[in-house]
Design a protein around this nucleic acid. Structure first.
Lengths: 137, 137
DNA sequence: GCCTCATTTTGTAATATTTACAATCTGATA
DNA sequence: TATCAGATTGTAAATATTACAAAATGAGGC
């Protein structure tokens, strides 16, 4: 059985071609795409695709813990289907969002300062390795 | 000399009544207000205030390191004039943004995984102390 | 294999935040 | 006080996201 079909069924999400394609795209492009990126790319092969469907599917995948949103600015959200815990760096030179694999102490504490912590997201700003090599500041 | 006048002058920001009021509001209301919150509150005393001025001033204060934006969703940005390093928790019960004072190891590492880190922001989701006491889940 | 129904997709329109821009106004220096 | 660069204002534009209703479709039962 196809991988993405199985994932949707395991999570009780009704299978549709649109959802399969969006899930496949997210799983094969770990580039932190925006909703527009997903829409624009998948519309090439499925011209009838609606942007509302992209947003609906994104919401559905997030509700089932298959997707997280990365929000660096109010301008747009970016998405990541890699759920294992890691942080994100926005490079001020090239604008790319880079995965930062670090052990974060707060992911293990469930209570901090009396508050219950369910999710931990680390947002970094700086200059990525590649831009530094190219003579970044 | 008034405190806020001094802050603006020290940072080479031309002093205007609007900037003074916005800075004063941010410094006396650590409630992580939105641009709309600031505008709505200050318009009471200065009806000619423009929302563009609020955005311009916010941008200016951010450029000079006097303000940071807190972005939990693309819906709206919230602002915080407390610059000393701390993280933020969005309570899923009451919707408030709570300051989390913790020592974060990444604030000290300037290079992680080959990337240069300039800023570290911790975003937490969970349930705040007050809501837990009131019988939150 | 076909019917039925609940769910999904689609497309348009609405919402809301933020930005662009030009005219007017004003703070700071000489 | 006069000057002028920079700030404020208001309107309008840009853009991401959400709301909604009609048409289409996936999945289970006969």
């Amino acid at each position: 059985m196809e991988k993405y079909l199985q994932i949707l069924r395991e999570h009780g999400i009704k299978v549709t071609p649109q959802r399969l394609e969006i899930l496949r795209f997210l799983d094969t492009h770990h580039t932190h795409p925006s909703a527009e990126d997903i829409f624009h790319e998948l519309k090439k092969r499925n011209p009838s695709l609606s942007k509302t469907t992209v947003y609906n599917t994104i919401q559905s995948l997030m509700d089932h813990g298959l997707l997280i949103s990365i929000v660096f600015s109010t301008h747009e959200a970016r998405f990541d289907s890699v759920i294992n815990h890691h942080h994100h760096l926005l490079c001020s030179e090239c604008g790319k969002i880079i995965d930062i694999e670090v052990e974060c102490p707060f992911t293990k504490e469930k209570i901090t300062g009396g508050h219950r912590i369910d999710e931990v997201h680390g947002y970094f700003r700086g200059v990525c390795k590649d831009c530094l090599r190219k003579g970044g500041k």
